[in-house]
Design a protein around this nucleic acid. Sequence first.
DNA 1: TATTGTTATACTCTATAACTATA
DNA 2: TATAGTTATAGAGTATAACAATA
Lengths: 144, 144
Amino acid sequence: MSTASEAPGSELIEALGAVAFAVMAALTRVAAEHELSLTQLRMIGILRGRQMTITELAQALGLDRSSVSGLVDRTETRGLVQRRPNPDDARSVHVTLSQDGVDAFTLGAAETAGLLASLTDALTPAETRRLTTLLDRMIEHRGL
Amino acid sequence: MSTASEAPGSELIEALGAVAFAVMAALTRVAAEHELSLTQLRMIGILRGRQMTITELAQALGLDRSSVSGLVDRTETRGLVQRRPNPDDARSVHVTLSQDGVDAFTLGAAETAGLLASLTDALTPAETRRLTTLLDRMIEHRGL
DNA sequence: TATTGTTATACTCTATAACTATA
DNA sequence: TATAGTTATAGAGTATAACAATA
């Protein structure tokens, strides 16, 4: 759709944008089916296999601590996460996944993969490996 | 990070998810710098070069008409879009971009590309072409 | 003094339901 | 009757500012 004289890379940007919206649509749909917000689904994904303080969660999610405080409130009411006292610092709390939270993530990941199969089925196994490698390179590069 | 015995493709799903969040973060940041929501930025992108009714916009955005009504209210107050009477149906309105709306999108697109350069700079020109081809294949495949 | 987390407040986004004007 | 758009209402998500408890 773009002309040959366009700046190099703009086609990549457009492709990345299109894929990003498709992935986000799938994630939003999966979250909605479990009556979760996208942010809640993201949070339980981040909490897999570890405990984090409110401040750490806020940094990981790119949100203010006060926003995360309310987010944890609502998710805790749903029984997906728990607040635990931090034995090393009485000001702080550790947030962890409950078994229901682990189950919700596992189910959600499988459903997301299913929805995105219409995208990923387009590629051969060899292409899948190549694409994964290229995407990982970009992600790691962003880290620094 | 994943074991060799995992289901094939789960690494691709994780990589796609990570890239999607990076792209959305860039878009959200660009929108925020212009004091726009992601939905508002998306809407003015959709309105480029055409006029749409509230119902059409709602379908394009995947939102309820009442949500779009408020969205257009706030964006119209900002001077980015305008409601025009539809001469063919007095019940309906045509929403169009103002010049400020066109400018906001143009600026936002350039800024987004700049922010995502930290991702795309990781690749050589040849890799960029390969990645673009693979992503396009997936996107077209999704279409049907 | 600085940091952690919470609360109060305000605004955006979103949906549902009820309404009006028009078709 | 059906459709287009709006409004009223309610809840989630977000940020800023102010606060209490702890370091």
